[in-house]
């Protein structure tokens, strides 16, 4: 019953967003164009590096491009469903917009995180997968049913991005402005654009445990290309679950602290 209700809310939110984006068609094109340039720059950066060395910490050029494809798709998934909501998160608290959500007969966090969607980024999910597909054979990816594994790992990447972004946004309940923390999220996010194995052990541990940005693209790419041990798989899920629990705890503490600013 509850699931049906939430699915229906999600369907209505998605429909509203689709209608809005259909009205602003140039917005769709500019969003796609901007992301294409971003992808081109990331690919060019590795192109420059590989013009100087044959491999990077065991990753060949096609393998890195395969990884980037997965990373772009994972990021695009987050952009479609959640990115805009996290940018608006501070307004919920600062401007008292959370009041309205608290009075609705659904979980306020669900409403807050599904309100806005960026339909244009759907194109980038396929573009990322297209890049991965183009370099899959040269990267040594077995293909076939293993593409299903890619989708499963994309979900892991999405879950990681959500819990991490939430962990950077929730402090708005305690601070007046959160844009510096949001910017810091994107600074750390740049780390996710490189394969995790290039980092020295301590930094790698940090980005696979304390701030697991490596789960967004690098670990999924490594898992589908070379496979990962059961121990590492359990570690991935344990870290995401721990973040989920901490986020939930902070949300509840934040709500207790929240004072309405609206009239």
């Amino acid at each position: 019953m509850a699931i049906t209700k939430y699915l229906e809310i999600f369907r209505v939110q998605a429909k509203n967003n689709w209608v809005r984006e259909a009205v602003y068609r140039t917005n769709f094109l500019t969003a796609v164009a901007t992301d294409i340039v971003w992808m081109a720059i990331e690919l060019s950066l590795f192109s420059v590096i590989y013009s100087n060395v044959p491999n990077l910490a065991g990753w060949t050029k096609p393998q890195v491009y395969f990884f980037l494809g997965i990373f772009f798709s994972s990021d695009a998934l987050f952009t479609v469903f959640f990115m805009r909501n996290f940018w608006n998160f501070s307004d919920l608290v600062n401007k008292g917009e959370l009041d309205i959500l608290l009075t609705k007969p659904a979980h306020p966090l669900f409403l807050a995180l599904t309100k806005s969607m960026s339909v244009a980024a759907v194109f980038n999910i396929f573009l990322g997968l297209g890049i991965s597909y183009k370099f899959s054979e040269a990267a040594g990816f077995a293909g076939g049913w293993k593409w299903l594994l890619v989708f499963a790992w994309l979900m892991v990447g999405l879950a990681t991005a959500i819990v991490l972004r939430f962990a950077f946004s929730i402090w708005i309940f305690w601070t007046e402005r959160s844009w510096a923390l949001s910017r810091m999220y994107y600074q750390f996010f740049a780390i996710a654009t490189k394969p995790d194995t290039i980092y020295p052990y301590a930094i790698r541990y940090f980005f696979l445990t304390i701030l697991p940005f490596g789960f967004i693209g690098s670990v999924p790419a490594r898992a589908v290309l070379h496979g990962i041990s059961n121990q590492e798989a359990i570690h991935v899920f344990a870290v995401i679950a721990t973040f989920g629990i901490i986020d939930g705890f902070l949300w509840n503490r934040g709500l207790k602290r929240y004072q309405s600013a609206s009239s």
Binding site: N52, L56, R177, A180, L181, M184, Q187, I191, I198, Y199
Partner: peptide
Amino acid sequence: EFLFEILGAAFVPAAIQITLWYAMFKVG
């Protein structure tokens, strides 16, 4: 916030660059 911005914008990109050099020279 001001301090966070400076630190984040300065050190994270530098750390990424240094690890790239590390991967090319020390690992590669």
